[in-house]
Design a protein around this nucleic acid. Structure first.
Lengths: 261, 261
DNA sequence: AGACTAAGTTTCAAATAGTGAAACCAAACG
DNA sequence: CGTTTGGTTTCACTATTTGAAACTTAGTCT
């Protein structure tokens, strides 16, 4: 993590620092950040000061460590409520979870990565904050591939450039070419598989959530294990998943959902 | 909403804009923001552009409206996990909810306002994102007063300056003086009441979560209704609530929790 | 103790990035 | 078809940001 591309302006740098702090996943000291970043000492120092003053970071005076501030949590609540599909999709996810009894994921695209914005766990009650907000790779997950397949050329290109193509399992499509072929197949088929490409034993069936104009708004998936079911059996559910995705899309449409990269 | 005090530097302004967009609670057009803010057209325009480019905002090309971006959701996940008391307090909240059967709130201080970081609803299962992240007034809520009472002088002063002292109910302490007297009483008593000061019929008992050094880390409250119970009955629970708060504090201490304003 | 080192904070002139009034453009309106 | 409304771009002016280096603590080692 860290070492972002090119941050435009002071704001970009500040946000970059924010990401960096987030990346550590624990309170960090000034010097930790200094070694990570390319910013010179004084610059980084002032950025941290500003962010702290703004409440985006908090500084523990005793240990001299920085952590993400609560202002972020507040902003995020608003972000989740207004900018993600989650609040709209909520009742539909419940329905799908009831119908299938499997794990449900709702995801959106965030800078070439998959961002899970909501989830239903087969057994447990929902625990949102703890689950949503996680990110995952796009090239080897059902939701990721479902979205990639319907991205417009430039956006796809940008997303592909950000894929790492790590071979998680023997089934992972670990090259650009293999992935492109699969995307073509997904467009033909209308839904995406995850055939143990990310984790052995885990399979899923995913469909994109498309606006009327064909814009990718997100993706929806039903996940299970090879122990419990097969790809074919999951595939039988595809029409229902597609149906739910369409309902979500229709409702989101009326909210005129903004474009995702 | 909007019209923040004085934003230091470009970063401050950008974050200010972010807050403003969040404040609307729906996608906003450029001109909506323009009328709200004091920033001149061009400045606001460039800020929006930068934020959009950074993924903190998204711009719907069709409607020309801005909404909070998904990057925030991602950041928030990290913030919630690493910087709030919530993950630590989780099991204790469960315990308290089981014991009391009432609604439980866990809050922290955010720029003079109360930020709810977790919640247990008497009946329903937890629904985090939808509930946490909300803010409320400090001067007329149990958790707010519990925290104010133990703030160091300068921080209290800063917080007081941000209170609006709106008279929500006939019981609201709607002046600085009345509030200060109550804070003194809270310190004596060791816990705070909300005696229908925010909403008629709603009462609660709240205690601060204090670090070993006496720093305010957050507050914990048990809420009920006048229909179901009385302040006195709630007061009987105070020792237990305090006990749980102490446990949370102790565990947080080992994580060396950072200072809150 | 005294000398060394690591970690964080401050300085200051140079350079860059941000500012905002005003001009411009485009689409919607009457 | 001229006008208004809403959004984008320009450009000279300025304030902010920059970062090497100097400085200050607070530990550590001998």
């Amino acid at each position: 993590m860290g070492a972002e591309g090119h941050a435009d302006g002071t704001v970009g740098k500040a946000l970059d620092v924010l990401d960096m702090v987030a990346g550590f996943g624990r309170p960090v000291r000034f010097s930790d950040l200094l070694t990570q970043s390319d910013y010179p000492k004084a610059t980084l120092y002032r950025l941290l000061q500003t962010l702290t003053h703004q409440g985006m970071l908090t500084l523990d005076p005793d240990t001299g460590t920085y952590a993400l501030g609560v202002r972020l949590v507040r902003l995020a609540h608003a972000a989740w409520a207004q900018s993600s599909l989650a609040p709209i999709a909520r009742p539909y996810l419940d329905e799908l979870a009831r119908e299938t009894g499997e794990t449900i994921h709702l995801a959106q695209m965030d800078l070439g990565q998959v961002l899970y914005v909501d989830k239903r766990n087969a057994a447990r009650p929902v625990e949102m904050f703890a689950q949503a907000g996680k990110v995952g790779p796009a090239y080897c997950t059902g939701v990721g591939k479902a979205m990639l397949a319907y991205l417009p050329p430039e956006a796809l290109e940008a997303a592909l450039a950000r894929q790492s193509f790590h071979r998680h399992t023997p089934h992972t499509l670990a090259s650009r070419e293999a992935l492109l072929a699969e995307l073509e197949a997904i467009r033909k088929r209308g839904h995406a598989w995850d055939a143990e490409e990310h984790e052995t034993g885990i399979i899923c069936c995913a469909v994109p959530i498309l606006s009327r104009g064909g814009r990718v708004m997100g993706a929806l998936s039903v996940t299970s294990t090879t122990a419990r079911t097969t790809l074919e059996a999951l595939g039988a559910q595809a029409p229902m998943i597609k149906d739910i995705a369409a309902k979500i899309a229709a409702e989101a449409e009326s909210w005129r959902f903004p474009e995702q990269v």
